[in-house]
Design a protein around this nucleic acid. Structure first.
Length: 376
RNA sequence: GGGGGAAUUCCCGAGUGGCCAAAGGGGGCAGACUGUAAAUCUGUUGUCUACGACUUCGGUGGUUCGAAUCCACCUUCCCCCA
């Protein structure tokens, strides 16, 4: 795994991340397919056509179903899902947040009541590493605790310290895993910064995490309840201290406007369920702002979702047709909606990269920061 | 021809004297969604000069302090017997 930044423009970094399954041009958006599938009915080949560079899958979910050993037996995640590009696996740390009612945290690890059948699932940092090694993703994530915001300082402090201890265990176990017949010998482990909305905890945690010298640094625990401005502030605080020669990954973010602001603050990689989920719910992103496709005003609208979009959906279908599909409950609505949004996100990042290449990120930033979040 | 049953707000459907502008679905309208327990969830859905008023439960008339609810007749629909 090699990462190089070859250009900077107005805070933004233009880089390349080499993985065992290809090069990722950064800034990049990773397409989230938690259970080795993009919800809405897109297959791996579909993603190629939408400009997807990296696929993101989830440790907790794949461990429950079908099980990491099954996937290892079938040759690893790439082969299993027929995606030959780069894959990043999240560790299950987010499920500590999203399944908060179904889990118990202890020093040793987290015990979940499976959201499927209630059975007990023990996930220690070591387990999360073993599972991800079996999945054979290109990038594995450390097992962390994603703390919801707002949370009391004392709690966040203790949680961040524990996440750091878990990181040491992850790192140790990772080295061990790669020694025993790895599915993907080039697989790497990235660290995750925590510390909530508290500047000093964030920096203290970052300092500890950098000592382990893992090849990528993720910022976790943001966009989980705090105001957007608070998230930007934390990025401002962290940004000067992030190692320049390593990829900066902002986990779970976000809206196009969030991404633009974060790129401006030196973030290289993003992932978010938003394009897929919101598409399923009828919200489509455009260069002019966000559309709610279900709105009555589109009944007779013969225009595409976005006049300036080159996606297969915008080139073929009208707002009126898509609205009809949504209102009629047709599964095609979800597929087409997700296709558009993923294309939009991937091309949005491509345009960001182009602007950096051309030394024009400042202009790009200024001309889009307001319009992207507008409701149209 | 005889007997029985039913008509409720956009639709289906609860309600059988006051707590009813009327449950619950559906449909409509709008909103939320950020490392996915989400093709989900929330709000709203008679009118208005709007913490109050007005109109509404097939129609007309009646009983009652008070009627979607009780009575009479009418209209329409359904079922059974001939």
């Amino acid at each position: 795994m090699r990462f190089t930044v070859h250009k900077e423009s107005f805070g933004a970094r233009r880089g390349e991340l080499c993985t065992p399954h290809g090069v990722v041009q950064t800034p990049a958006f990773m397409n989230v397919g938690t259970q080795a599938a993009i919800k809405g009915g897109l297959s791996a080949p579909d993603l190629k056509a939408l400009g997807c560079q990296v696929f993101l899958a989830n440790t907790y979910h794949l461990h429950l179903r079908p099980g990491a050993e099954v996937i290892r037996l079938l040759g690893g995640l790439h082969r299993f899902m027929a995606w030959d590009g780069p894959i990043l696996t999240d560790s299950g740390g987010f499920q500590v947040f999203s399944l908060a009612k179904l889990r118990k945290i202890e020093e040793d690890g987290v015990t979940f009541n499976s959201h499927i059948d209630g059975r007990l699932i023990h996930l220690r940092p070591e387990d999360a590493m073993a599972i991800q090694a079996s999945l054979g993703s290109d990038i594995a994530m450390a097992f962390d605790e994603c703390v919801s915001n707002p949370a009391p300082y004392d709690y966040v402090s203790r949680a961040a310290a524990r996440t750091l201890r878990w990181l040491e265990r992850c790192s140790r176990e990772w080295r061990r895993q790669l020694e025993v017949s790895p599915v993907n010998p080039g697989q790497v482990l990235w660290a995750i910064n925590q510390g909530g909305v508290y500047d000093d905890l964030r920096l203290e945690n970052l300092k500890g995490l950098l000592e382990l010298d893992l090849p990528g640094v993720a910022i976790g625990g943001l966009a989980v309840g705090e105001e957007t401005e608070v998230m930007y502030h934390i990025l401002d605080v962290l940004s000067p201290h992030l190692p320049a020669d390593k990829p900066h990954y902002l986990m779970g973010v976000g809206t196009p406007a969030n991404i633009l602001e974060a790129v401006y603050r030196g973030v290289d990689i993003f992932d978010c369920v938003m394009p897929a989920r919101n598409a399923r719910h009828g919200h489509l992103f455009t260069w002019q702002g966000v559309r709610n496709l279900k709105n009555e005003k589109y009944v007779r609208d013969d225009r595409p979702v976005d006049e300036s979009c080159g996606c297969p959906v915008c080139r073929t279908h009208s707002l009126a047709y898509l609205r009809h599909l949504y209102k009629a409950g047709e599964i095609l609505a979800l597929r087409l909606g997700v296709m558009h949004n993923l294309y939009f996100y991937n091309h949005f990042l491509a345009e960001i990269r182009r602007s950096i290449d051309e030394d024009g990120f400042e202009g790009f930033y200024r001309s889009h920061r307001e319009t992207l979040c507008r409701r149209i």
